[in-house]
Amino acid sequence: MKFEYKDGKIDYKTKVLKPLDVLVLRFVKALEFRYVIVSGYVAILFERSRETEDVDIIIDKISKEQLKQFIEKAEGLGFFMINAFDVEDAYSLLYEDVSSLRFAEKDEFVPNFEIKVAKSDMDLYSIEHPIEVALINGPMLKIGPMELQIAYKLRLGSDKDNEDVRHLYRLFAKSLNKQELKYFLQKLDVKESTFESVLNERIS
């Protein structure tokens, strides 16, 4: 695989799109506001050999009218809401329950898109510092900052998260801002021993 990560952009036009990538590219057409894709799909986008049942997306805080337009657009693209039955219900799920809204392709349940409104400092930072990934013949995908995702997954610490971290770190090690990664690790209270045990190296 060949890609270039520089100045907040990843040129990955050599990527051979898989069915999940095509689905993601179709879904993000409905997102006419700021968003970032985070977590497992980021590793999968960069060829991590595993499947996922959901693609996590953080979106900006949007109005009910914007939410209505988004739902209509997603439905027009062939998706439906799994866990809400109308705009009011979706709005209440996102803002009152502080939960996530899920979309899947019509007549399917998995994979699905799990939408959350940016709430925490980390979410807001991710939205404000997206990495743009350029794929061939497709619109740009926006993913969360790599350094923060690595620190966040190390903090979560499941086997799956650690393996994703190892994959992403090995791929992007040369391009990562180590000072920034160190800062996020410290803020999330990720121990040096955790970093070393997952990555077999010390954070320099």
Binding site: I82, N83, V98, S99, S100, R102, E114, K119, S120, D121, M122, Y125, Y152, R155, L156, E180, Y183, Q186, K187, L188, D189
Partner: peptide, 27 residues
């Protein structure tokens, strides 16, 4: 770098983890 309060950040993260756990079970 963002001027984050580590305690607040970790508290938010733990709350989110719990919300995610509940959401996965409901799903």
């Amino acid at each position: 770098f963002p001027n984050w309060d580590s305690k607040k950040l970790i508290k938010e993260l733990e709350e989110e983890k719990e919300r995610n756990r509940q959401e996965r079970l409901r799903f």
